[in-house]
Nucleic acid binder design. Structure first.
Length: 569
DNA sequence: TCTGCCACATA
DNA sequence: CTATGTGGCAG
């Protein structure tokens, strides 16, 4: 039953300030040094608990530039990658322990936005949260040594606005603000799920928050993308600094107004990141498993700069770290793995894919979408076999650790409340391929599935005042917090599910836990986690069974390299 | 608002 | 070469 929890974890560990900001962020070339060893002598250190893992956001400077302007990420029906890409450098892991790394993208608040007058404004209440999906890094599970060896890239993660997306991409609503989160789940064989020490940590970099759009709203963001994303080179002006005219493709050949020039310039100017590093205010705290912290509004001072959009530099972005140790309560399913993939009628998938704005309810139902028709390409998504290459960038990665907290995100926006995400359930998504890990939600709290404000029960971790009265606990300033895995009191108390078997992992999400059972290995993919697990449990189990297919452990990943991006070719 | 197509880019 | 990631623009 329970064991101790890691409670309090948060000490300052990640709270250090980091500020070293280099003026030139643009520099992006890959460099070799990424793989440098972790700081110090820690090698010998006994503390290799999950809560001691340090996560540094790669290209934080670039993220900050976007953040200051109000990051926007395009979402399309087919799925669009994020830019900047989410890449991190890890240290402090036990080299021999296996971990699963995954990302989820949760609502940052419960507003709907509109871009008016060159600014983002709140335009109503958010749509019900979409069922959440998880993107599991293709190399998962892998030993700590593997993850620490080089940058870990999540660049293949794709965002979609298709509520019925059959590919396993992360589904989002347009014009809403989101916060990506990284979860590190211990997957050692010895920590099988039901065993006692399964633990996970959640890290949140505020500067990675963004507003989803179907087409860019803020011109400044467009320019930043063009200037920094290698795939958008075709839109860059011919020369560097000068004529910032952009090529136009296709049909009309027009040139762009000088405005772009200004933007560019400004961008350069923005070097004013001030670091004031300071703040570390926060100590991470422990939360119940459901809490989540979202970004807050910063002071809004609005800036008045030549460019309207310019946002006051936010303070440092913080990193939120959340960790749990979890023990038995989780339930877990066994997978029987046998088939390589599910056989859902393809028709279903197509239907989903093509249908337009579906209600997402259907997605709540655990239903395997897979159809064999998926091409290898999709397979890769799940399978994650491809190596990722680094796109962009590159600069060296940041070296420092823990970011201080920050809360401000887009100043121009109205304050955000810290929104609890609990209501969002993870959408069960059957992976098409067996090799993916199966995720089982483990404790789900009866969260409402979509509830806009579900927080009812959980405490929220937030930092800012909650707007709506969300229960908030304190907001940790930055970075990280850990929580005991044990579930919060209210969590589901009863779950006791089956026990795990192989490597089980639990990841916490806003809603609750996810238990990931990996049989063998799985490759990157997006896994759904259901929300009211209890309610859907049977279905999920079935789904998982199918998903993992049966035959046992899946072959190990084919290509690994999470970091292929590191190497420069 | 969103989608499909385009030229141009990476890999 | 192929496959695929970009933003612009027309619709």
């Amino acid at each position: 039953m329970l064991q101790e929890k890691v409670s309090a974890v948060t000490d300052g560990r990640m709270s250090r300030v980091q500020d070293a900001i280099q003026p030139d962020l643009l520099s992006q070339e890959p460099r070799p040094d990424l793989s440098t060893a972790p700081t110090v002598p820690s090698a010998s250190e006994p503390n290799q608990n999950i809560e001691n893992i340090k996560v540094v956001l790669h290209e934080r400077e670039l993220w900050k530039k976007f953040h200051e302007a109000g990051t926007e990420m395009i979402i399309t029906k087919a799925g669009r990658r994020m830019f900047p890409s989410y890449k991190v450098k890890l240290t402090g892991m036990n080299p021999k322990t296996k971990y699963i790394l995954l990302i989820d993208v949760v609502p940052a608040d419960d507003h709907r936005y509109k871009f008016c007058d060159n600014k983002w404004m709140v335009a109503g209440k958010a749509e019900p949260a979409m069922p959440g999906r998880l993107y599991v890094h293709p190399d998962s599970p892998a030993a700590g040594a593997h993850w620490m060896r080089q940058l870990v890239s999540f660049q293949k993660l794709k965002l979609t606005n298709n509520h019925l997306d059959p590919f396993g991409h992360i589904i989002l609503n347009s014009m809403h603000k989101y916060q990506p989160r990284l979860h590190i789940v211990k997957a050692d064989e010895n920590n099988a799920f039901g065993s006692k020490n399964t633990a996970y940590c959640t890290h949140v970099f505020h500067e990675t928050a963004f507003i989803s759009v179907t087409s860019y709203q803020n011109h400044k963001i467009t320019q930043l993308k063009i200037e920094n994303n290698p795939f958008a080179k075709g839109f860059r002006g011919s020369e560097e600094g000068d004529p910032a005219y952009f090529k136009t493709t296709g049909v009309s050949d027009k040139e762009y107004p000088p405005i772009s020039k200004n933007s560019v310039r400004q961008r350069l100017i923005s070097s004013h990141n001030h670091l004031a590093g300071k703040l570390m205010t926060g100590h991470p705290q422990v939360l119940s498993s459901y809490q989540y912290e979202a970004g807050l509004p910063l002071a809004n001072s609005d800036s008045q700069d030549p460019i309207p959009n310019h946002f006051p530099p936010s303070r440092d972005p913080g990193l939120l770290y959340h960790c749990f140790k979890h023990r038995d309560n989780s339930r877990h399913l066994e997978l029987g793995c046998k088939r390589p993939f599910l056989e859902t009628p393809s028709a279903v998938s197509e239907e989903h894919y093509f249908r337009s704005a579906p209600s997402y309810e259907s997605s709540l139902l655990p239903r395997p979408y897979h159809n064999e028709a998926f091409s290898a390409r999709e397979a890769c998504m799940y399978g994650g076999m491809e190596a990722e290459s680094g796109s962009g960038a590159g600069d060296v990665d940041d070296v420092n650790h823990s970011p201080p907290m920050n809360r401000g995100m887009w100043a121009t926006m109205p304050p955000y409340p810290r929104y609890t995400v609990d209501g969002v359930a993870y959408q069960p998504f059957a992976a098409h391929f067996a090799n993916t890990a199966a995720v089982t939600p483990v404790v789900p709290h009866p969260a409402s599935t979509m509830a806009p404000r579900p927080q009812s029960d959980l405490g929220v971790f937030n930092s800012a005042p909650a707007q709506r009265g969300l229960p908030v606990i304190s907001p940790p300033p930055s970075a990280s917090s850990c929580a005991p895995a044990t579930l919060a009191p209210r969590d589901r108390s009863d779950h006791g599910g089956p026990v795990p078997q192989e490597a089980g992992v639990a990841a916490a999400t806003s809603q609750g836990f996810l238990s990931v059972s990996l049989t063998g290995c799985h490759q990157g993919s997006i896994l759904p986690v259901p929300d009211g697990f209890e309610q859907h449990r049977d279905t999920l189990e079935r789904q998982l069974m199918q998903t993992t297919g049966g035959t046992g452990p899946v072959p190990i990943k084919v290509s690994l390299t999470p970091s292929s991006h590191l190497h420069h070719h």
